[in-house]
Design a protein around this nucleic acid. Structure first.
Ligand SMILES: Nc1ncnc2c1ncn2[C@@H]1O[C@H](COP(=O)(O)OP(=O)(O)OP(=O)(O)O)[C@@H](O)[C@H]1O
Length: 745
DNA sequence: TGGAGAGAGCTTTTT
DNA sequence: GCTCTCTCCA
């Protein structure tokens, strides 16, 4: 009990013991903010005797929520049966809405629309309004709709303040999009938050209920709350004011999706009597790392500044490596990881980057060096098309009004319902303000003349099948239901017929889905809960602390820590990203992102940048410039690592000269590009004169994943030969002989 | 209607 | 390099 407090420093303890009244913890990276929340929850339960169900802790990601849940459980050591409600903003809102959304005129089995669904809805809205041509990309329209929602702007408000045609078009689309979603009984991600706020406004009794229930509310990463989340927290705490918010203004990295740093800066005005506690001891990083990170973020003008110290000792300087291209960057990172894990196989390594596109090259390098790794984010299990299809069937069976799900699968597998037929249904739906399902029923009932008999038959078969599945949903267990879906829709049959390794892979994934359903069933989940889970746990390959090596974007890394961190792609245009270049506030956000990334490291931090980086595969950008963030780190904190690539003789003669970023650059400009790979490190592949004999153009080859394909081209010799092959269903692939295990047929 | 093949455009970051 | 979209043909 008291041992809880013993594991905290004086300020942290003060924060934990201050249980009642508003509390704000504003502190830098690695100072134990999250730890305070965790201990505070345990303290409230164990020492103050607060029932767990009266405590709510909100985080931004599932990853963070899961970690916090685990830590609280570990602190309580099973002495308390139930755990407090620890969840993300979004899943908290879903749990509220699943109970009370009827008050807003939706039904409780509402569907959560993902990005695909949203795009489909925008496109349909555009078609109905005759604005299809005006929409340059549905994504940008959606981004603006989302921004409006996060600011709490309704379609009506947008329309009333629209003075030019473009703004009026946008407002019209927004309005139609909203009515499409409502008609489909669907909410998008932003709605989950927004509708909860509206619900609490419109139904004060419900708001009261939650205020009474959650006597203690904790919010992690408060600096990244947007306006809607802010209002939600206010609503939840207005009665008791027992709120504990923690955050760090230097780690605010979600301004672009509406996060408002004013929320944390004005906290004491919102909650009179706020106690503010600052934590100034960093427990994570060495002095070198901390100094380097602080130096970078100090370049932000709009910043209060705070002090942070560490007892962890000076540590190693921040490594800096300049690579010729992204491949070499990958090889370098891989060889360093091999070295690191060779010294201590229990170390954790984080490989962080600005954009998801960087991931593939790095992954490839790790794979080739047989390093096990995990990727957080990116395409998750639930993003795969076959899984989405299966879930779309389930969604439609669950909610026949879900037009987006229906549009997705009405002709997958192909069942003779082509684009013309679908267009007619859509037109009918638009004309009579029907859902797609209702349009189908009406078309069948009235025997719409414009549709061929063959099309009508296909539609009727589809209707009968879906009605059957809707019934199965009620009579079958969750896993049986999914089996029925795959069976009755002949989805597996379609994949079987393809008879390719990829199709088998997809069948395997679908089996996995059935397994997941069976597990959910054991936990007592219903279909709608299962679907919520699939919609909300988007980074499904959630962070596994046991994994030695983890790849992810800087944004995903927030809140985590690694013994060794690689920050790849430190180049102007990439980081800071070129799209932030002419907006000072955006640039400062990039700099904070850099601070977040650097402070993830406990013992060692290595920054890498690349001289020539390819974008979209082809266009090679001529000569990149190292990121400005690199030059913002004092030279004495940097250790140039390229030196190790040369003989020890070269190192001594150049040693002092390269002890700076400029020095490294000068060094390489004088030396040219003839880097010699170090003898211990992995071999850098280099292209060789083309003498193609082994892979004749037009010959057939077999690939374990893509099946049989036709050779289009090959370059290089021996094991390094790169063969370009066209695989039916996959298109063109460039494969390196050594890794691809190609077989001649 | 649907498959294959070719071409265009695209990527910042996430719940 | 990848994916969505268009076009052509059975
Ligand atoms: N009093 C303490 N004694 C020992 N270790 C501590 C203490 N406080 C925090 N730590 C350790 O310091 C590290 C950082 O803590 P935590 O993740 O809670 O910080 P944070 O402020 O939330 O960090 P960030 O904002 O950078 O994500 C963790 O490994 C944690 O266990």
């Amino acid at each position: 009990m008291n041992s809880l407090l013993e594991q905290l420093n004086a300020q942290q303890r003060a924060a934990v013991e201050h249980t009642d009244g508003p509390l704000l913890i504003l502190a830098g990276a690695g100072s134990g903010k999250t730890r305070v929340i965790t201990y505070r929850i345990a303290y409230l339960i164990e020492v103050c005797g607060i029932p767990p169900e009266n405590i709510l802790a909100v985080t931004f990601t599932n990853k963070a929520a899961g970690q916090m849940r685990d830590r609280v459980a570990a602190l309580l050591e099973g002495r308390v049966g139930r755990l407090p409600h620890i969840s993300t903003f979004h899943s908290f809102c879903v749990s509220v809405l699943r109970r009370h959304i009827e008050r807003l005129g939706y039904s409780r089995d509402f569907t959560i629309y993902d990005e695909d669904d949203q795009q489909r809805a925008v496109k349909v809205a555009g078609q109905e309004l005759g604005l299809s041509d005006w929409i340059s990309s549905p994504r940008s329209v959606l981004a603006r709709i989302s921004a409006a929602k996060n600011r709490g702007v309704s379609p009506e408000k947008m329309r009333d303040s629209a003075y030019d045609p473009a703004a009026r078009n946008l407002a019209a689309l927004f309005e139609r999009y909203e009515s499409k979603l409502r008609q489909s009984n669907a909410l998008d991600f932003d709605d989950l938050l927004l509708k909860t706020v509206v619900l609490f406004d419109d139904a004060p009794d419900v708001a009261e209920e939650y205020n009474r229930r959650f006597r203690y509310v904790m919010v992690d990463e408060y600096q990244d709350t947007n306006r809607v989340q802010y209002r939600l927290i206010r609503q939840l705490t207005h009665a008791q004011q027992n709120i504990c918010a923690v955050g760090d203004e230097d780690q605010s990295i979600y301004r672009w999706r509406g996060a408002d740093i004013e929320n944390i800066l004005n906290f004491d005005q919102d909650y009179p009597g706020t106690i503010m506690i600052r934590l100034e001891q960093n427990y994570r990083s060495t002095q070198m790392i901390l100094d380097a990170a602080t130096a970078v973020v100090s370049h932000n003008i709009a910043r209060k500044g705070k002090s942070l110290r560490t007892d962890r000792g000076a540590g190693l300087r921040v490594g800096l490596y300049e690579a010729r291209n992204a491949d070499e960057e990958g090889w370098f990172v891989a060889s360093e990881i091999t070295k690191t894990l060779g010294e201590d196989s229990l170390k954790s390594v984080g490989v962080l980057f600005r954009t998801n596109a960087q991931s593939r090259t790095l992954e490839e390098a790790l794979r080739r060096n047989r390093i096990e790794y995990r990727v957080v984010g990116g395409t998750s299990f639930y993003d795969r098309s076959e899984i989405k299809d299966a879930l779309a069937y389930a969604r439609l069976a669950n909610n026949l009004r879900d037009s987006s799900a229906m549009q997705r699968i009405i002709n997958t597998p192909p069942r003779g319902i082509g684009q013309t037929t679908i267009d007619q249904l859509l037109a009918l739906a638009a004309e009579r303000e029907l859902t797609l399902w209702e349009a189908l029923e009406q078309a069948l009932a009235t025997g719409a003349q414009t549709l061929s008999n063959r099309a009508l038959k296909a539609l009727d078969d589809f209707r009968i099948m879906m009605t059957g599945l809707a019934r199965d949903r009620e009579t079958h267990s969750l896993s049986e239901f999914f089996r029925a879906v795959l069976d009755h829709t002949r989805y597996i049959e379609m994949l079987d017929a393809e008879n390719t390794p990829a199709a088998e892979n997809r069948i395997e994934n679908l089996r996995e889905l059935v397994n997941a359903a069976a597990e959910a069933e054991e936990r007592g989940e219903r279909l709608s809960e299962f679907l919520d889970h699939a919609a909300l746990v988007s980074d499904a390959d959630s962070y596994d602390e046991r994994a030695r090596v983890t790849l992810m974007t800087l944004h995903s890394a927030k809140g985590l820590e690694f013994s060794v961190v690689f920050l790849a792609g430190m180049e102007e245009g990439l980081f800071p990203h070129k799209l932030s270049a002419d907006d000072n506030a955006a640039l400062e956000e990039e700099r904070r992102l850099c601070y977040v990334g650097m402070t993830r490291a406990r013992d060692r931090l290595v920054l890498t940048w690349v001289r020539e980086r390819r974008f979209y595969g082809r266009q090679s950008q001529e000569g990149t410039t190292p990121s400005r963030f690199l030059s913002e780190i004092p030279h004495e904190l940097i250790e140039p690592l390229n030196v190790t690539m040369f003989s020890s003789k070269a190192r001594t003669s150049w040693g002092s000269a390269v002890n700076s970023v400029e020095g490294v650059e000068r060094f390489f400009s004088q030396r040219g590009r003839d880097l010699k790979p170090s003898s211990s490190g992995p071999v850098i592949p280099r292209s060789q004169p083309a003498t193609p004999v082994r892979w004749r153009q037009g010959s057939k080859v077999r690939h374990p994943k893509y099946g049989i394909g036709t050779v289009l081209d090959s370059e290089g010799v021996g094991e390094d030969t790169k063969v370009t092959v066209s695989f039916p269903g996959y298109g063109r692939k460039k494969l390196v002989e050594r890794y691809a295990s190609l077989e001649k047929v």
